[in-house]
């Protein structure tokens, strides 16, 4: 097997393993008619990528530039997919941890998603070659998690 294919296979296996663990705890079947299920899965996929990146940053698994890039690309994909999934007028949903601020402050929420798209796009365009570069990319992305979750998310 060509070594780059092997690396990608390893990275894919690692991501799947992390997401299996991550998803296993709150498995939600995606349903095209239920945006709540779609966005929960998107966020869990972000979690799996964060897990992969974190393992590389901690040294639990060896740093692989292609795997790091795969994590950033996944996160960008998630950011790109979020905006249509919070339709106005959705009833309060016990399963969903979407906070009321999403609708009360729709402009602010849209701006937060736009920032997430922009930041993850920047990260994607500069594939990290070292753990330090991955760490730098992640500190920006982590800031997005924090800022959005702080205002727009609520535990139920």
């Amino acid at each position: 097997m060509k070594s780059s294919i092997r690396i990608l296979a390893d990275a894919a296996a690692a991501t799947l393993a992390v997401s299996a663990y991550a998803g296993g705890h709150n498995l939600v079947t995606p349903d095209i008619n239920d945006p709540v299920t779609l966005r929960i899965n998107i966020m869990q996929n972000v979690g799996a990528s964060a897990g992969l990146a974190s393992a590389m940053m901690k040294g639990t698994i060896p740093f692989e530039p292609l795997a790091a890039q795969a994590a950033l690309v996944t996160i960008n994909t998630a950011a790109l997919g979020l905006s249509g999934l919070f339709p106005a007028g959705m009833p309060e949903n016990m399963r969903s941890s979407a906070g009321p601020a999403i609708w009360a402050d729709a402009a602010g929420f849209k701006a937060a998603i736009a920032k997430f798209i922009a930041d993850s796009d920047d990260a994607k365009l500069f594939p990290p070659e070292t753990v330090e570069e991955l760490r730098d990319a992640f500190s920006v992305l982590g800031g997005n998690c924090k800022a959005c979750h702080k205002v727009y998310r609520i535990k139920r």
Binding site: G99, K146, K150, R153
Partner: peptide
């Protein structure tokens, strides 16, 4: 330290301030 749970969910609401 990071706000990430073992599932890599990220802390929400006021817990972000705590972290």
């Amino acid at each position: 330290e990071s706000g990430f749970t073992p599932d890599f969910d990220s802390a929400s609401g006021i817990m972000v301030d705590v972290i």
